[in-house]
Design a protein around this nucleic acid. Structure first.
Lengths: 213, 213
DNA sequence: GTATTACGCTACGACTCGTAGCGAAAGCGT
DNA sequence: ACGCTTTCGCTACGAGTCGTAGCGTAATAC
């Protein structure tokens, strides 16, 4: 016999308020201290919970920061600006605005760095951030196809490869511009970037050889 | 009266061998431990020097890792493959090969993350890695112009902006592909990426409005 | 009411940090 | 050859963080 509660075990349930408080405290600590000087003890104090509570829910600093940063990117949405170039510019500007926030800057790159030696962490990042935001590429393409700006995709595998390429180019360029080159992704820059991306994509063959434009 | 030695102060000179040993030991430690678990004491032991010697030469872990990683990218060179697309594909593949090495993966992203909160560190990265490798973009453009594949640049400022855009797109996309998406930059991927980049750039107006193609 | 789980708190050994102090070693200039 | 200057290796140190264990209490399901 199953219990009446869905997946509920017996006993005192975990406080959902504590979760949100901890994640918010983590972001605040990232702003004040950055990743390397962030300590779990400090986060616990800021959140008003015991350090042990933190260790009961997260395996370590990496996992905690991934979850704290992942929430930031959930506010991304694809604005309907009327045309594909305008849509892309809009979402890129949103992405740049998030990366301009210190809690995203220091946190995101740090966990990516750690993930190069931790497969489980990399998978956590992929699932909770990367794959989650790839929706924007897919939505954008669907909307452009509905507008007639893009042709339908004949080959599903090729379409997936193209989506991956776009995502790597967009996210990579914006991250590199803002974090490595340390220059703001201004509207002018975004416009130039979008133009290069779209014209370049227009040249892509559908596999056989010729472009579709 | 100046001393005869160029910039030499009196006293025992610093061992150049120690520098190379320390940087090599740092890369070895990055491979074995990654950035977060790398300790300066361990590096000193691996290099066969005292921990105090290390602190006399570098301010901290960040600066040390920047120097250790920067050396990796100095082996990049622009191969002459006969055409601009082929040249780009060649250098991108080299870049991807370096990023495939664990000492580059974990080290580079970690110091970039730290640099978001440390202006001096960011400047050190910019000078010793970013600006240093931007030469590849400039060389590639010059060579393509000599071949007649690209027109001469009328506006120097616009040319610099374009070079920055190219660098952000190339480095960003490769880094994102290999480190975040965690997929190898295969020849097929590099070919697709290069095609998009070049076709996109071909569309760029020289400022007035029309493309030059 | 009872079983079960989460929570807050304290304390702990192990480890790393960055620095200070010392004597010895290695060049530089005369 | 000789002193001057700087670096080097070594040891030791207080401060801080880590992750865990143990305990009594609080909150929920049955």
């Amino acid at each position: 016999m199953q219990s009446s509660t869905p997946a509920g075990r017996a006993g005192r349930p975990r406080s959902a308020a504590a979760d949100t408080a901890i994640l918010a405290a983590t972001r605040a600590a990232l702003v004040d201290l950055g990743w390397s000087k962030l300590t779990l003890g400090d986060v616990a104090t800021r959140a008003g919970v015991a350090k042990t509570t933190l260790y009961r829910r997260w395996a370590g600093k990496n996992e905690l920061v991934v979850d704290a940063v992942a929430e930031l990117f959930d506010e991304l949405e694809l604005p309907d600006r009327g045309s594909l170039p305008a849509d892309i510019e809009g979402v890129v500007l949103q992405f740049a605005a998030i990366l301009a926030r210190p809690e995203a800057r220091s946190g995101l790159m740090a966990v990516v760095a750690e993930s190069t030696r931790d497969d489980a962490l990399r998978e956590r990042i992929r699932a909770s951030i990367v794959e989650r935001q790839k929706r924007l590429v897919l939505e954008g393409r669907e909307r452009a196809q509905a507008r007639g700006e893009l042709p339908p995709e004949p080959d599903a595998a090729e379409a997936a490869r193209t989506a991956d390429l776009i995502f790597d180019m967009v996210a990579g360029a914006v991250v590199h511009r803002t974090l490595v080159s340390a220059q703001a992704a201004t509207e002018e820059w975004v416009r130039s970037f979008t133009q290069v991306l779209l014209w370049g994509l227009a040249s892509r063959p559908t596999e056989s050889g010729g472009g579709w434009a």
